[in-house]
């Protein structure tokens, strides 16, 4: 139960984004090189803020 809550918090906050990216990458593009953690994080932040993210 605690484990589930912790996983939920990590997912909501985006703390586990990199791990999920790796999982997706391994499944969808096996064999191709993946981004490193800092690289992934940088790209994600740029992408996230290129649009309406927050409301009034």
């Amino acid at each position: 139960m605690l484990h589930k809550i912790w996983r939920f918090i990590r997912q909501v906050s985006g703390d586990d984004a990199y791990e999920r990216y790796l999982a997706h990458h391994a499944a969808a593009h096996p064999g191709e090189p993946s981004l490193s953690r800092p690289e992934f994080f940088r790209r994600e932040q740029e992408r996230k803020w290129n649009g309406v993210r927050r409301c009034c």
Partner: peptide, 27 residues
């Protein structure tokens, strides 16, 4: 269109959290 980044099937409560955080501002 899953690309592991912006298009990504996500737990509905997580989406709910994101959506609510995005719509609820000072207004």
């Amino acid at each position: 269109l899953d690309n592991g980044r912006d298009f990504m099937p996500t737990n509905k409560w997580v989406v709910f959290g994101h959506h609510f955080a995005a719509i609820a501002g000072p207004g």
